[in-house]
């Protein structure tokens, strides 16, 4: 039998899967970072930056691990800053523009609830490294959801204006959530190997959790539509290019810059 250093899954498959997890955090962390200096209040500036830093921290752990699994000597910075557009495997939802504060909050609730359900199940992963990262990240994400859902309830159940804005953000972003739960052969291989939870289980729990928040926020859940997004497979919306240009500029202009 050929050596399978990572349990019951192929290293190449595990590498791609860990990139999916890591890129979600990296791209969303970068997006949230755009709020620094622009949030509606100083306190929110710090709140959003805090979430962004947690996400970048999770990205570092995951991308470092991805580099080790790949075994080609790439570290977290190489992977974060020196890949091309099509090599990023984050879902398209996290690269969507921040919009107004309400739209950022809606996107955050959708992702926080997703990450929480993922990480809570990944505690039991057969991959010890992922189990450990998930245990640490779950604590952070539980707070992220507390923060974002608190705001969604405040805005949804707030004024006519704030309600209308978050409802329209929810309608606009909802189609991108379908991709999160569309299981492909990589998701299936990870679930079969006990590395990751089944997306169907995550989806059911996510909907239950989300419905409770939306009910409190007096918001209506849009219906699912067929989607054509495949960020998890490296096919992105036009927005990712701009994020990467900004994020990678320094590394590409001054390779291995330190300060």
């Amino acid at each position: 039998m050929s050596a399978m250093p990572f349990g019951r899954v192929e290293p190449q498959a595990l590498f791609r899967y860990v990139l999916r997890l890591g890129d979600l955090n990296l791209v969303l962390g970068q997006r949230l970072g755009e709020w620094v200096g622009h949030a509606p209040a100083l306190e929110e500036d710090l709140g959003l930056a805090n979430v962004a830093l947690d996400l970048i921290g999770q990205a570092r752990l995951l991308l470092t691990y991805a580099g080790e699994v790949e075994g080609l000597g790439r570290d977290e910075d190489d992977i974060a800053f020196l890949r091309e557009h099509g090599q990023y495997l984050n879902p398209v939802l996290v690269e969507q523009p921040n919009g107004d504060f309400g739209q950022t909050i809606v996107r955050q609730v959708l992702i926080d609830a997703f990450q929480l359900e993922m990480y809570e199940r990944m505690h039991a992963s057969t991959d010890e490294r992922l189990a450990a990262i998930a245990a640490k990240a779950a604590k952070e994400v539980r707070y992220h959801l507390r923060y974002s859902s608190g705001w969604l309830v405040r805005l949804g159940d707030g004024t006519l204006e704030s309600h209308a804005r978050v409802q329209s953000a929810l309608d606009a972003l909802w189609p991108y959530t379908v991709e999160l739960f569309a299981e492909d052969e990589l998701d299936r291989a990870m679930a079969d190997g006990g590395v990751a939870p089944r997306l169907a289980d995550v989806h059911a729990a996510w909907l239950t959790r989300l419905d409770a928040i939306l009910a409190e926020a007096t918001l209506e859940r849009p219906s699912d539509r067929a989607h054509s997004w495949h960020g998890k497979r490296g096919q992105h919306s036009e927005h990712l290019g701009y994020i990467l240009a900004e994020m990678q500029h320094l590394q590409r202009a001054y390779p291995e810059a330190r300060w």
């Binding site: 209040a41 100083l42 306190e43 710090l46 709140g47 805090n50 707070y143 507390r146 608190g150 405040r154």
Partner: peptide, 20 residues
């Protein structure tokens, strides 16, 4: 001290501002 719209938000802000 800090500004917040309600007590829950005040706790969140306090957590982010004063217990980092």
């Amino acid at each position: 001290s800090l500004h917040a719209a309600d007590a829950r938000m005040a706790i969140d802000h306090a957590r982010d501002l004063y217990t980092r």
